[in-house]
């Protein structure tokens, strides 16, 4: 009960902080439009890269363009949602360095909520729109044998994927408390992760796939659910129910990330900056 109250309080604080940043962002309308468009193009060019590949080949590791587009759309949409929700966490290190992190610590609300809502910006919707458009096209173009479970799995996949990426952002923020200057490391897991998931798992080495399935379970963002939807063999021959395990994996990731964050914050407060 107390735990639930804390979560609700945290969400309220998040809304307050994010709302302030949205209003701040609106004071530079021209810049807002330019960067919204920029975000759209920026992520879009990744897909242009894939289209260029498919201008030269008919399939990649046995996957057709619509199938790869499905992976791409799911990965980018999930990541886009996470990036919208917690995209400024990679800048925690600079907040710690310039001392403004201390300002967050003297406010009567959750620090995690404040860090999550920090520099919240609607221009990040560009990525979601672009990923969603590609996913939409893929759903039409790919040869999918629709069932009720597949239709239900789709939103579940996107939300769970976003939550898994949020957990990665939170863990990355916790890491920055120890190593503010090494903030770039987490790009390997966030941006690197979403890039990797755009391609079929069969492309990558077995050990790499094992790593992103069992160690950092990014495979549950889209690879495993997509295998079910598209009727393809599961990576690493996982059992059939694994496609529906994404919410559980996401919950587990959140628990671990929360633990990491708490540990990091405690160490900040006992070590200082």
């Amino acid at each position: 009960m107390a735990e639930r109250g804390a979560v609700l309080e945290g969400l309220r604080a998040y809304r307050l902080i994010a709302g302030m940043w949205v209003r701040s962002g609106m004071t530079y309308r021209a810049s807002f439009v330019v960067t919204l468009f920029g975000n759209l193009v920026m992520t879009g060019l990744d897909f242009v890269g894939i289209l260029l590949m498919f201008s030269q080949v008919d399939s990649l590791a046995g996957w057709s363009l619509p199938e790869v587009a499905f992976l791409y759309g799911a990965s980018v949409t999930s990541f886009g949602l996470a990036h919208l929700a917690a995209g400024s966490m990679p800048q925690l290190g600079s907040r710690i360095r310039d001392g403004s992190f201390d300002v967050l610590l003297v406010r009567p609300v959750s620090v995690l909520a404040q860090v999550g809502g920090d520099r919240f910006s609607l221009r990040r919707l560009g990525r979601i729109a672009q990923g969603g458009a590609v996913l939409g096209w893929a759903l039409v173009a790919a040869d999918i044998d629709w069932t009720v479970s597949k239709a239900l799995l789709l939103p579940l996949m996107l939300v769970s994927g976003a939550v898994i990426f949020v957990a990665v952002f939170v863990a990355g923020a916790a890491f920055q408390i120890y190593a503010q200057d090494a903030a770039e490391v987490q790009n390997a897991f966030t941006y690197g992760g979403t890039t990797m998931l755009q391609y079929p798992p069969a492309v990558f080495g077995k050990d790499l796939v094992r790593g992103v399935t069992f160690v950092l379970p990014l495979a549950f963002v889209n690879w495993v659910p997509a295998a079910h939807v598209l009727g393809r063999p599961y990576p690493l021959a996982l059992p059939g129910w694994a496609a529906f395990a994404s919410p559980l994996v996401a919950a587990g990731c959140c628990a671990l990330a929360g633990l990491a964050w708490r540990t990091g914050l405690r160490s900040y407060r006992s070590v200082g900056s």
Partner: peptide, 18 residues
Amino acid sequence: VFTNTVFGLILVYTYLAL
């Protein structure tokens, strides 16, 4: 260095497949 290596790893596999 770490991030560039990871990105290299991801890209190299996609290029190999291509």
